[in-house]
Amino acid sequence: MTDQLQTASGASSEGMNSLLTNRRGWRPGGAGGDSRKTVTFGDSSAVRSSPAWTVVALIFMGILWWAATKAWGFPAEFAAANEGLRDVDLQAACDRDETCGRDSYSQFLSPRTFPSPRDTWTAMVELWNNGFANETLWAHTWASLRRVGLGMFWGVVIGVPVGFAMGLSSRLRGFFDAPVELFRPIPPLALLPLFILMFGIGDRPAVRLLFFAALWIMIIAARSGVRTANLSKVRAAYSLGASKWQVLTRVLLPNALPEIFTGLRVALGVCWGTLVAAELVGTRVGLGSMIFAARPFFRLDIMLAGVVIIALLGVLMDVIMRFLEARLIPWRGKG
């Protein structure tokens, strides 16, 4: 209110200041901004993630992990007897120890079978230095990123135009509704056996599975992006002399970008989550393949290190996407 008054009266410097703070997304009364508020419980717009408590949670998780490996640790003699068994499979380890039965699975939560934080760190260093399964860690990571990238690429290239078509024409909406609604609920992994038979093993079925995972998400994101276009905007563009093509490229597309970007983030998350299973289809390189390659060698430390790397990369990708979103779509939510 005061902002409007000031700016309407010719943009005083105070008015400019409030404009600038708005740009950074600070709102008066935001977190810590107004400690004089008496109603706090239920004021969800003032809730922000507290960094201190995030650190507490990370430490707590670390302690739990460490405690778990201690609490369910093996008897010392068992661990000693199993020294050097690293490359022998689980059955062989059990055969040597008569106590190894259904009732003693907890024994496998030993520092060796359930790797401690330190073991996992050592495995990560080993991966970093030597790689695993005849490939460097970078080769595994790159193979996985490439598959996800390709699947996403085709998902966007095909999904966005289809979504736009569905948002712009009742006929095309009707036509595509059937496949979209039918295929969307299918878990990509349910198609895995089919894809192996159809496309063989290796890169091709993996990429196609990721494409399948991304496609429906992108179609729906683009469709709802078109539908958020305010009719006034479209009409204004026509009144300003825009052609249909110009309305599509200069109004509908930029208007849909925030939704499309949300779709990208969701699809990337889903693809990353599907990746490990997609790499079950006989790929030799890749983070998922690496984890499966570690299994017959009983290398739980490598497996867990792989899981940690996948988790960290997932977080990193989301951070990058958020950064890009803030840079590329600063108008998000401000229309």
């Binding site: 305010n230 006034s232 009409r235 009144s239 930029p254 970008l257 108008w331 401000k334």
Partner: peptide
């Protein structure tokens, strides 16, 4: 014929 709407017709991008 130019149009001025109540709001939301500017291109915020």
């Amino acid at each position: 014929r130019g149009m001025v709407f109540q709001q939301g017709a500017l291109f915020e991008w």
